[in-house]
Design a protein around this nucleic acid. Sequence first.
DNA 1: ACGGACTATCAGCAGTACTGACGATCAGTC
DNA 2: GACTGATCGTCAGTACTGCTGATAGTCCGT
Lengths: 149, 149
Amino acid sequence: MHDRIDGQTGYLLVKLGGSAGARFERALAPLGMKGRHVRVLEILRNDPRSQSELCQETGMDRTTMVAVIDELERLGCVRRERSLTDRRKHVVSMTERGGTALGESAVLLTQAQDELLAPLSAAERDRLHALLIRLYAQPPDPCAPLPPT
Amino acid sequence: MHDRIDGQTGYLLVKLGGSAGARFERALAPLGMKGRHVRVLEILRNDPRSQSELCQETGMDRTTMVAVIDELERLGCVRRERSLTDRRKHVVSMTERGGTALGESAVLLTQAQDELLAPLSAAERDRLHALLIRLYAQPPDPCAPLPPT
DNA sequence: ACGGACTATCAGCAGTACTGACGATCAGTC
DNA sequence: GACTGATCGTCAGTACTGCTGATAGTCCGT
């Protein structure tokens, strides 16, 4: 009965993750951003960071990060300046415009999430959240080629 | 508190889906297959299909399907023959070797899934499964550019 | 002052999924 | 039977993605 991969928990996770991801990307489209941009902005919300720090915290590749910062800069959400203390580094800081964009993205994403979770009651959502947290906390196995961010 | 995207249910779903997908792909590597090959084999388990039927049922692109069938044929898991009733079609049918490969893949995938769900008790897994099913049953919104298979 | 390490950047590569075009075949119409 | 339009599988070329490797600039310890 349960030997078909289709319909198994793991498969459902993959499928739902994929469609959820697509949903979020679509939700952000009006801002001209993708998920990674938001994630970077979120990190920058409080303190500026160097690009390599951003890479570490997001798991993104350094070359990808260059492009993401480029785009955020072009949107006026972020400023890139040479560090005064270490002139190798670029200090990336969020602009005011970046802050409002981050706020807008939060609205859009929350809305998309609500659509996604629509079939569940509030209590069920909490239960789901708790279960996912448990899974997420699991130490990922060592040689895992993580999916691109 | 909950306004950070990080740690929200939707985000967790995306992240877990991604790492679960990677896990499954890795699990199938010893067979020289990816998830899509297994999915095709699974459909062929009972009855042969034409390639376009396989496309319909999997959502894969027709050109991608050509490659997948090519690879499955090269592995000896599948046979491609001109249909006698409609000579435009290729009837794709699973070989015996394909059957055993499908069995092996089921073992590997189940194992990977067990690792993935390790942090949860059996009861919790059932609850998670039930919740995911509810979400999965949700009619996907109309203009959804579904993620590649 | 010098060798080694780190930072950001760029060009080029590999993988993926798709678009468009094509030959072969079918079904329906005249 | 010939013609038209549609379908099936295939392939070449395109667009996009994320990464590898190389490079210039900069720092730090000796």
